[in-house]
Amino acid sequence: MIKNFKKLTAIGAAVALTLGLTACGGSGGAAASAGSTGAAGTELASGSAENTSKSGQVFRTLDEIKESGEINIGVFSDKSPFGYVDENGDYQGYDIYFADRLAKDLGVKANYVSTEAANRIEYLQTGKVDVILANFTVTDERKEEVDFALPYMNVSLGVVSPSDKVVKSLDDLTADDPVIVISGTTAETYLIENYPNLTLQKYDTYANAKNALENGNGVAWVNDNTEVLAFASENDGYEVGIATLGSKDTIAPAVTKENQTLLDAINGEIKSLGEEQFFHKDYEETLVDTYGADYEDELVVEGGVTE
């Protein structure tokens, strides 16, 4: 039930402007919720954030989400195998498998909203989504703007480059060797802080970054190691010369600051799913074809407990 009609109208207008970026869809995977919404790219995010945090961010509480019957989840639509739209227009991937189960256990439909790396925080703070499940790496800087739940995956950075000129050390590069990154990612932040003399070619989407590498617009692409390993395995002529760059981090869901009821529910869900080894099942359903069984225990985090 919407308690504040004026606020609904204002937020509804803002959401309408982002029609091209929003979508609702359900995974066809084994964990798909019976209440997940249909094909991608057909509807706006439903519901309206009714609460405002001390910093001016808006959000819906767990009770309000349940009352609406839908949870708006920000996911990637072009980052296989974590979040992508298949040939039938349905969302698939590691994040989607988890999102479907989360929605099912909350007793609501999953309404998927396509997001890009650079606008994940914005979509939370403006109430366009209730939770982000878009391969979101936990960092101290991001903790100042959103609240992270328990982790469900390990990750670090990696570097992929053409096989005929493999980049094995960023120290070998100069300002004349452009490096591809995606805006708003930890890769961008890491390179700016640690390799300020490198020339960065920045792109807003994963699809554009991949196209740039394929078109020779950069000597290498720096991104999550899971992503560059997947790219190299799926595309002939490319090799991951640096499999681990910088520190090891974790991937976790994120909610708007002060949305404690939803944060508690997600943390409880992650702990409960850990008891049934859910994320190992998720890996085997969505990632094993890309990474093989050898990476499973290294990448998967069960119950929010890291080594």
Rank of each mutant, 00 (worst) to 15 (best):
E193Q: 09
I11E: 15
T185G: 11
N259L: 01
S163N: 07
V222Q: 05
I251T: 06
V240L: 01
D95S: 12
I242A: 05
Y203T: 12
Y94A: 04
T189G: 08
F148G: 12
L157W: 03
V108S: 08
D297Q: 13
V179M: 11
D95I: 01
G56R: 10
V129Q: 14
D100H: 06
G83A: 00
A209Q: 04
F5T: 10
E275W: 15
P162I: 11
Q277S: 12
T199G: 03
G47W: 13
A49I: 15
I2G: 04
V108H: 14
G29I: 15
L200N: 07
E298F: 14
Q125S: 14
K143E: 05
Y123S: 12
A40L: 12
V228A: 05
L173Y: 03
T286R: 10
G127F: 01
L150P: 05
L133M: 08
E258D: 06
A118V: 14
G304C: 04
H280D: 10
D204M: 06
D282H: 07
G69E: 04
K143F: 05
G237V: 05
S80G: 00
S183L: 11
G12M: 13
G216I: 10
N135Q: 06
T290N: 11
L21A: 15
K6E: 13
S77T: 14
G25S: 15
G26P: 01
I96F: 09
D147R: 09
E239Q: 02
N111A: 15
E284W: 01
E214K: 12
T306E: 10
D289V: 04
A254C: 08
Y291L: 01
E67C: 00
S46E: 11
